[in-house]
C-alpha cells in the first residue's frame, strides 16, 4: 500500500537530485532543467499533502476537499511560474550563446572581485 510517506520520500529524492544537478553540472540548460526538477518535486509534495485525507481510511470532511482544492490550485500556479521562468531562462541562455558561443557557466566568469 502506497502511503503519504512514499510520496514524500520520492519528492525528497527528486528534490535532492535536482539540487545536486544545479550544484554539479556546468551546462546552463541542464542546470535550468535541474531547477525544474526541484520545482516539480515540491509540486509532488504539495499534491500528496493535498490528497492526504484520501489516504486515511476514515470518511472525508467537507474541509478536506477545500484543503485538496487549495493545494492543487497552488500546484497549477507553481507550474505557471515555472513555465514563465523557463521562458525567460531560455531567452537569457540564447543571449549568452550569441555572445560567447557556449553555454558553459565556467566560461562566464568575467564578473569577479
Amino acid at each position: 500500500m502506497i502511503s503519504l510517506n512514499h510520496y514524500l520520500i520520492l519528492s525528497a529524492v527528486l528534490f535532492s537530485v535536482g539540487a545536486l544537478g544545479v550544484l554539479l553540472r556546468r551546462n546552463a540548460l541542464i542546470i535550468l532543467m535541474s531547477v525544474e526538477l526541484m520545482l516539480n518535486a515540491a509540486n509532488l509534495a504539495i499534491v500528496a499533502f493535498a490528497r492526504y485525507p484520501f489516504f486515511r481510511e476514515v470518511g472525508l470532511a467537507a474541509e478536506d476537499l477545500a484543503v485538496a482544492g487549495n493545494g492543487m490550485v497552488f500546484v497549477f500556479l507553481v507550474m505557471t511560474v515555472a513555465a514563465a521562468e523557463v521562458g525567460v531562462g531560455l531567452a537569457i541562455i540564447i543571449n549568452l550563446y550569441r555572445q560567447r558561443q557556449t553555454i558553459n557557466i565556467e566560461i562566464a566568469n568575467l564578473l569577479q572581485g
Partner: peptide, 20 residues
C-alpha cells in the same frame, strides 16, 4: 548577459527552496 544568467539560475534555485 552573464549577470542575468547568474541571477536567473540562483533566483530559480532559491524559488525551488521556497516552494518546497
Amino acid at each position: 548577459g552573464e549577470a542575468s544568467l547568474k541571477y536567473l539560475l540562483l533566483g530559480a534555485f532559491s524559488s525551488a527552496f521556497m516552494v518546497y
